[in-house]
Amino acid sequence: MPEWRDAEYVVVNLARAIQPNEVVFSGVNSVLPMAACILAKRAYDFPFTYLSVAGGVDVVPERLPRSSTDPALLAGSAAIFSNEDFYDLATRGKLDLIYLGAAQIDAFGRTNVSAIGEWAHPKVRLPGGGGAAVMMPTAPRIALWRTEHSPRTLVEKLEFITAAGNTVVLVTPYAVFERDPAKNERFHLATHRPDVTPAEIAARTGFAFDAARAAPTPTMSKRERAALDAIDAFDLLDNETPKNETLRGA
């Protein structure tokens, strides 16, 4: 059995993106980032503020809700930080780290969550980017995740740019890519799952990247493991990463 299940790798590496004292936000349709924030609250000693789209502040539920907008993320909260509040916080640059998902991602951390094919006559209508177009250029640090790591999801050219901006990290089930938005640079491979080589990752990635600085991702700590096991009693996380079954062993 591999060291990391796909969902575990994404969740733990999204959690590792959090820095001490940051204000961190997870939004709608974002079970894995929600899990990352809850894991970080349980596994890491440093303080940070966790805001969820459900309106709760620093709520750490006993079990992971199926919806990342669930009122379970309000239970016990001493405040409700509403939609208008967290958007304004983001756009005035005070929401330090925001997690955003996407269907397609390019080497500059831009996203397409709108359509496959021509926007006006799409082959596939995607959900839309939520607040990404507003938050991505205004919040200081954006962390992207994608549960399917393939040439059709990580692309050189997006079919539509839903959002562009301050992406600093991209986590997939195989790899962690990083970039400095201030330099408007492309992603480089920062770390990779120990059982997948940089060459294998390159073969599964539609954009070119520098792998010179790549290292194996550090092993999950005992506290990260324990936090994951505690919150994922219902195996919700595996449900979030079904698409990679087709990629395993490819």
Partner: peptide, 22 residues
């Protein structure tokens, strides 16, 4: 007029909405 459309809660995209647009 929408920003993001999905059933959510692990159910993914909203199928009838998606089909109506396509």
């Amino acid at each position: 007029k929408t920003g993001i459309v999905a059933i959510e809660g692990g159910f993914g995209l909203a199928p009838a909405y998606r089909r109506a647009i396509e």
